[in-house]
Design a protein around this nucleic acid. Structure first.
Lengths: 133, 133
DNA sequence: CTTGACCCTGTAGCAACTACAGAGTTTATA
DNA sequence: TATAAACTCTGTAGTTGCTACAGGGTCAAG
């Protein structure tokens, strides 16, 4: 399997795969006579794991840690759960932030009367410090 | 007002102010004899506007556009509303993404039985392609 | 007159890619 | 067999929005 085929199989860009190799997330595969990377199913599994983790919002470092843990088969998976719960907490923090933004934006936009810029409520709202009506 | 005072007044870091100047978001102020930046109330207003926009999640380029519009006092503010609504739409997209992530993470974490790594449901879930149970 | 708190410029770093340039390789077709 | 298209290679620079130095200069207090 060359890099293009791997990329298609994991729904990833070729450059991203090379990037993962450069940062040590995906092991460097053997090369063909023409210096092409030659991947096997193990690489594909690792890459799918990585992409899935990224889709779920885990950082590269978290994924690195998860991949390390996944290789210690008879350890307890508590450390895995810790990473997952930490990430979930972070997701919840971001959700709270975004929800607050959404509400403020809706309030501000709702006040717009399509006046001239001089009386624009949106611009007025932006000119205030946080929370000031 | 020197840069440190401006920073305190707008709850911003000094380096951030210099960064905004470098990218042309905040106009370069006059300098004192000792080459210190000398700011006035106009700068403070512009910086507060910028920080407020950033807190609401607008990009630097959107803030640049909003500041430009704010200076054309007798134009209609429709263009302002367009930018705000576009940003709100983006916020909603991100909220949807994060909400999906949150749900998936909670499902995955809920399946954890604190087994060994070899049977870890979290790691299993990460090894699947998206949506596969 | 020196200590400390500030300010200056310029550059490099962060995350996680993405996008080239300029070269070599493989494969399909004429 | 030639050649063109489609791939691959390395290396480097760009993206966003800052943040963090290093190595200097300035200013006010004691």
């Amino acid at each position: 399997m060359n890099i293009g085929e791997l990329a298609r199989a994991a729904a990833t860009k070729v450059e991203t795969i090379r990037y993962y190799e450069r940062i040590g997330l995906l092991p460097a595969p053997p090369r063909t006579a023409g210096n092409y990377r030659e991947y096997c199913a193990t690489h594909l599994m690792r890459l799918i794991f990585t992409r899935r983790g990224r889709d779920l919002g885990f950082s590269i470092e978290q994924i690195r840690a998860l991949l390390d843990l996944a290789n210690q088969k008879n350890r307890s998976c508590k450390a895995v759960a810790v990473i997952a719960r930490e990430h979930l907490a972070e997701v919840k923090r971001k959700l709270a932030d975004l929800t607050a933004m959404q509400q403020e934006l809706e309030t501000i936009i709702g006040q717009c009367r399509n006046d001239t810029v001089a009386d624009c409520r949106i611009l007025e709202a932006l000119a205030q410090k946080e929370g000031q009506a």
